[in-house]
Amino acid sequence: MVMRIAFGFLSGLVFGLGLVLSGMSDPAKVLNFLDLAGTWDPSLAFVMGGATLTAFIGFRLVWRRTTPAFDCTFDVPTNTRIDRPLILGAVLFGTGWGIGGFCPGPAWTALPLLAPGTLAFLPAMLIGLWIGNHGKHLQIFAPKGATQ
């Protein structure tokens, strides 16, 4: 239990250091990455590239083990269906990302810096997550013939 918490904290710390050092936690950089027609800053492509490549190699190394260190199974999503909630959710998320320049991780790491924009964004994000979680179980999002 203590080890799970210690290593959970360490993982979050490494993630957060990565967000801050890469510039991903600065909304100005994110919005400039998304501004192809204006003050474009391609840095974020390097963040995503470095992160994805490291995870691509690292996942394959850790999957050689039969179990993770502190759990019984590797719990990896098996759903391959590209459905309505996935696409609608991604459209809403991308729109909010383009307005505020924050996605969930950077919003957390920015919180201790207490910028007014962050203090407005984060509680709204939590409310949105909670509402979305309830809405996800509504009938309108159930794809035809799909089982949940």
Binding site: F93, T95, G96, L129
Partner: peptide
């Protein structure tokens, strides 16, 4: 939007 979108 970010909260709604990422949960959906």
């Amino acid at each position: 939007l970010v909260g709604l979108g990422t949960s959906l």
